[in-house]
Design a binder for these strands. Structure first.
Lengths: 86, 86, 86, 86
DNA sequence: GAACTTATGTCGGTGC
DNA sequence: GCACCGACATAAGTTC
């Protein structure tokens, strides 16, 4: 073979890259699993009549700092009023 | 040359593909131009003190059917109340 | 009425906001028109047998600086080889 | 109080919604944790000289079905050749 | 720290 | 009607 040594053509550098990639792949799988779980919860919610889009909005709102959230609400109200957007 | 005829290696099919691609490219340029104009308007708005994110929200709200919008507003209020999210 | 002057409740500031919003809306319409045209070209291409996803990729590749593109291609080849990803 | 029973104003429905939301929130946290781990791996890779963008591309390629991937590669080559896009 | 690029999440359209 | 896919808006990160 062209490469010296006992491996089959993969340099140490290649292995390092491969190892990193494989770590990412395992983590990506995990992430996908969790994402699927989230989708399941939303589907369950939908099945009992909740509006998924609204729920996503709620999750976002709850993640915000309460002061920021209130400030944002207020500002939006102001702008809507300015445009007569009831 | 390998190809018969007067052209320099491009088949009629190639030209058809190229033509389609070029039409897309011209349109993409146009689109980019308009997108830039939009960004300019937002920058102008920001410069006089408006909140760009709020403005985007307003544009979306105004694009909605008024009845849908009011229904959505109401539903969100209900959900927020259910969670004690003032 | 509550507001002084001749208008019906809209301050000058409100009008400025409204004007900006309306400019954005007009531009958004334009943009949508162009986006529709692009979709039409792709549909036309699909109808004569081209793969739309590939075409999108081509448009992206052609938009890149040729040197960057070749460099990127080369690097990717190297990495793929390192992983035995033919 | 307005509501009958022992709770402090939350109906059973409200609780059901809240419970669903909280499940989502826990899962979102998990997901964020995994995403952070992924970012760490990429940072580690970058620190030893790898190109992160390329690595992301590799992960995507490896996730594809090998046959699909080869077919896609081939088709793209064909199209690039048709456009003289070396 | 401000602008620009890249990554992620959401949304709407399309095909099954 | 639902799932997939592409497009857009937002958020994070990078560079000057």
């Amino acid at each position: 073979m062209a490469e010296k040594g006992h491996n089959s053509g993969a340099s140490a550098t290649d292995d390092r890259l491969r190892l990193l990639i494989e770590r990412v792949e395992r983590l990506e799988e995990e992430k996908k699993g969790v994402a699927d779980d989230i989708r399941d919860v939303y589907n369950e919610a939908k099945a009992v009549g909740y509006d998924v889009k609204m729920m996503r909005q709620l999750v976002r709102l709850r993640a915000m700092d309460p002061n920021d959230r209130r400030e944002r609400d207020l500002l939006l109200e102001t702008y809507r009023a300015a445009l007569g957007l009831d």
